[in-house]
Computed example of a mutant assay.
Amino acid sequence: MAATVRPGRRLVLLLWIGFGVLAALVGVGLYGLVLAPTPSTPTTSAEPTAPTAVAVDPEPSASSATLPPIRSTSDAESFARDAARALIHWDAATDFDPADYAQVIVDAGDPSGTETAGLASDVRTYLPTADAWLALGTYGTRQWLTIDEAFVPASWSDAIDQATPGQLLPGTIAYTITGTRHRAGIVGTQAQETSRPIAFTLFIACEPSFDECRLLRLSEVDNPLR
């Protein structure tokens, strides 16, 4: 196993994804592990869409001086759920920006740095651009995730069979998350809230490669392993 190397400076993350629904999704290829994505630039939309009726309790917005890290655990499913929430949850009305939220995800990545560039590339497809973030802040927009299921996809066994010897770290596993992405904000003087289904897959390595689970890569949004 490669020696642990922690980045000495904050990663510069070029965020090219807008507020709207991803209209162009990235291709799936082999990069460091089986079936990981290569991102491209999707179309964007900065303004909130028309509200839909949603009966959920909104998640609390971020208000502390620093964003909390993803909780350390050796339990793959628990880690997948926590990482999924950290990936989708953000609040444009705070002092944080997309790079702050992205950094939380990257910090939970492969400590050897082997997958860092790929993971950072994956993360930026999930977040608004810096310009869109400014527009979202004027609406007080925030986003959060309600998880319905977290499961190891049936196709993961096929991915393992397709991997060449040494391509996957021991203890690597995939978890697909399905649920609902919620967004809320203020347009004029009226509170608006929208929601839509969302699904994605997290590729995780736990024991024996690492004492605590680490996030290696992410699938493209709404194109998870099943």
Rank of each mutant, 00 (worst) to 15 (best):
Met1Thr: 14
Ala2Thr: 12
Ala3Leu: 09
Val5Arg: 11
Val5Phe: 12
Pro7Gly: 00
Leu13Ser: 03
Leu14Val: 14
Leu14Ile: 09
Gly18Phe: 07
Gly20Phe: 02
Leu30Arg: 15
Tyr31Ala: 11
Leu33Val: 04
Val34Arg: 12
Val34Phe: 03
Val34Lys: 06
Ala36Arg: 03
Pro39Val: 00
Ser40Phe: 06
Thr41Trp: 13
Pro42Glu: 04
Pro42Thr: 08
Thr44Glu: 14
Ser45Cys: 14
Pro48Trp: 06
Thr49Trp: 02
Thr49Asp: 12
Pro51Cys: 01
Thr52His: 07
Glu59Leu: 14
Ser61Glu: 02
Ala62Gly: 06
Ala62Lys: 00
Ala62Arg: 09
Ser63Asn: 10
Thr66Ala: 15
Thr66Tyr: 15
Thr73Leu: 10
Ser74Met: 00
Glu77Leu: 12
Arg81His: 00
Ala83Trp: 08
Ala86Arg: 14
Ile88Ala: 00
Ala92His: 11
Asp97Asn: 03
Ala99Val: 10
Asp100Gly: 06
Tyr101Lys: 09
Tyr101Thr: 02
Ala102Trp: 01
Ala102Ser: 07
Ala102Leu: 06
Gln103Thr: 15
Ala108Lys: 09
Gly113Asn: 05
Thr116His: 04
Thr116Gln: 13
Gly118Asn: 06
Asp122Trp: 10
Thr125Gln: 12
Thr129Tyr: 07
Thr129Asn: 03
Asp131His: 01
Ala132Ile: 02
Trp133Met: 05
Leu134Lys: 12
Leu134Ser: 05
Ala135Gln: 09
Ala135Lys: 08
Gly137Asp: 03
Thr141Glu: 10
Leu145Gly: 05
Leu145Thr: 07
Thr146Leu: 01
Glu149Ala: 12
Ala150Cys: 15
Pro153Gly: 13
Ala154Ser: 15
Trp156Arg: 12
Ser157Trp: 12
Ser157Pro: 07
Asp161Trp: 04
Ala163Trp: 14
Thr164Tyr: 07
Thr164Asn: 04
Thr164Phe: 09
Gly166Asp: 08
Gly166Trp: 11
Gln167Asp: 14
Leu168Cys: 10
Leu168Pro: 04
Pro170Phe: 04
Gly171Thr: 11
Thr172Lys: 01
Ala174Val: 06
Ala174Leu: 05
Tyr175Ser: 08
Tyr175Trp: 15
Tyr175Ile: 11
Thr178Tyr: 08
Gly179Met: 04
His182Arg: 04
His182Asp: 03
Ala184Glu: 12
Gly185Asn: 03
Ile186Val: 15
Ile186Leu: 14
Gly188Leu: 03
Ser195Leu: 00
Arg196Tyr: 13
Arg196Lys: 15
Ile198Tyr: 03
Phe200Tyr: 11
Thr201Cys: 02
Phe203Cys: 00
Phe203Ala: 01
Ile204Leu: 15
Ala205Ser: 14
Pro208Ala: 12
Asp211Gly: 14
Asp211His: 10
Cys213Ser: 04
Arg214Thr: 07
